[in-house]
Design a protein around this nucleic acid. Structure first.
Lengths: 338, 338
DNA sequence: ATTGGTTTTGCACACCTATGCAAACGATCG
DNA sequence: CGATCGTTTGCATAGGTGTGCAAAACCAAT
């Protein structure tokens, strides 16, 4: 029925030119006369020809595919980032091949292998760790990697995060200024750099006021654990404020306190999150939180990655972007706070 | 530095066999002796060889890439579906190439073109319309398409939805049984089949009780429009219940009523949504809603798509899956409701 | 040892495009 | 009009893999 695939040869035949001429017409910056271009385009349109990206990639060594490794999408921060990443890359003629690292939980290792099979031009990992060995593997294959919202010590890897230390420090200062006496902290997964940096920044911020948290627990970025930790902190440790390692967990904490324990936020306990996902601005939570500037983070990620693809000799970069504290109503606001 | 790319020829040379032997070892179901397999695998492991999927696709005509077109990820239903789709497809050795139809808003047309450039084996569109002409183009290229959560009349397209008509009808019956007298409906975008089917089902459900909605407005699946519509319905039309076309808008409606207008849900107005996204179960909203069984919908989608890829002669399918009403606290519960 | 049959292997080509190179072309100038 | 130079075109090859076909190897049976 349908002529299965229309190739550049078909177009060439129809236009009465050589195959290489057709190729040149579809290769930006190649040497073609106007007349030739018109003739070929006409024939191509008529046949519905479009160049085969895969065949092209075989010879150029560029697939124009970016591999994205992501662990889970329940935290609204990641779909949001994914959407922005995809749009930004589409703009540049790249596309995202998705890879879930969560699923069967075979670990990131096999995932990277499969990604390499597709000859991706670059890799972005979001919210997922990457061992030195994996980094080495990608590096050996000459594929640039950018860690999004995660840090790593390996110097061969680029990374883009918000300034987690400073951000968490701001939160500490905000809570101190608000007159809180007994603050708790539910960390992100302490196996992640993000979680650790925020904890460190928070501790540093409290320390300058001569304070320290009365309770710390690892929430593992999960709702259930965060909620349980919050309950313990309120009941056993009598906290009057909790800094929760990300918004996703902060919502769970507010649910637990307000709906399960009948407490008021912020009257009984102040809650502060981290990320400023869209949901944080919805009235149901109206969460005070530190904004991760995901637009700029995505911009930096794409720029860094594409730059390294085009100039393989560029140094890997470690970028941390500052974000503002977004003051809403889930935490007591200090007098005269600007 | 790093031996740029290691090919099957390198492996063949190292193992002292022909290139085709290497190919066969990595092709499931090919004729290879045990001895040969061992020898080749050893050489391959040592060199770190993995077959080039793109080169393979050139000759097999199968890229093992599925194109996913998605409009926006703010509605939690879609990231959730995306995650499930990706996992299910990975299981079968396929991967998802993402395509945002929202971005520059150039429309789905160019998106499909670019997808075809990548020689995808199949296309899934989520929450996005597809014109007959586009369908024809994919069909001509021999690429199966499955519409996820959207309907279309074209018989060449497969589609998987929940049973929107029946679901919305259930909701109408629930509201009627709850004794509501003045019900309103904020539809999904009426340009979408999903929006229209739910409206039709809702009207049908009311009709069997001899009722009809006192107000109908198009929410376009957007928070702001849904909130505005809700306010009008409450102030001008004095509704005592609103069926909102999806959860995403229902949250906005609850926010508007509770936080902006100071009303109580369900005491002043009952709210019912559609989708049962995870957030609907969180205590802050605790939304009564009709569950779209996304697990089964994804299963059916993947099955249908892969089946059509393997057997191009299979008939396109239109699948509608029933979902249960999940009764929570955002709508008055009828006496003795089971 | 020879035969027949089965499995395994290698050869060569195909898939579709981009690009170096040399030939053809067109224009410009003397 | 011929020489010169820059532009445009075609030829041929490469890129990494799968597969039909025929030759080779193997095995068992006579």
């Amino acid at each position: 029925m349908s002529e299965r695939k229309v190739t550049s040869l078909d177009v060439a035949a129809k236009a009465g030119v050589s195959q290489s001429a057709v190729s040149r017409v579809f290769t930006p910056g190649a040497s073609v006369s106007q007349k030739m271009a018109d003739k070929v385009r006409a024939a191509a349109d008529e046949l519905g020809y479009r160049p085969n990206v895969l065949a092209r990639s075989l010879i150029t060594g560029r697939s124009r595919i970016i591999g994205l490794v992501v662990a889970y999408l329940e935290n609204q921060f990641y779909p949001d980032a994914l959407e922005r990443l995809s749009n930004a890359l589409q703009e540049q003629g790249y596309h995202i091949l998705i890879f879930m690292a969560s699923g069967t939980g075979e670990g990131v290792g096999t995932v990277i292998d499969e990604l390499l099979d597709y000859q991706v031009d670059g890799i972005i990992t979001a919210s997922v760790g990457m061992s030195d060995e994996l980094a080495a593997r990608c590096d050996a294959a000459g594929i640039p990697v950018v860690l999004f919202n995660r840090g790593q010590d390996d110097l061969r890897l680029s990374q883009v995060t918000s300034n987690n230390f400073e951000g968490a420090k701001k939160i500490a200062e905000f809570l101190v200024a608000g007159g809180h006496q007994r603050v708790g902290h539910i960390t992100g997964w302490t196996g992640s750099s993000t979680g650790r940096d925020r904890e460190a920044g928070f501790l540093a911020g409290l320390q300058t006021a001569g304070m320290e948290p009365v309770a710390i627990a690892d929430g593992h970025y999960r709702r259930a654990e965060a909620a349980a930790a919050a309950r313990r902190m309120v009941e056993a440790d009598k906290v009057d404020a909790i800094f929760v390692g990300n918004d996703h967990m902060a919502f769970a904490v507010m649910d637990e306190l307000r709906s399960e324990m009948g407490l008021r936020v912020p009257d009984d306990v102040s809650i502060v999150g981290y990320d400023d996902v869209p949901l944080a601005g919805w009235p149901a939570y109206d969460l005070t939180t530190l904004r991760q500037p995901s637009g700029r983070m995505v911009g930096a990620t794409v720029e860094t990655l594409l730059d390294r693809i085009d100039n393989p000799d560029t140094e890997p970069q470690k970028i941390a972007i500052d974000g503002p504290l977004i003051v809403r109503s889930s935490a007591r606001v200090p007098e005269g706070w600007t």
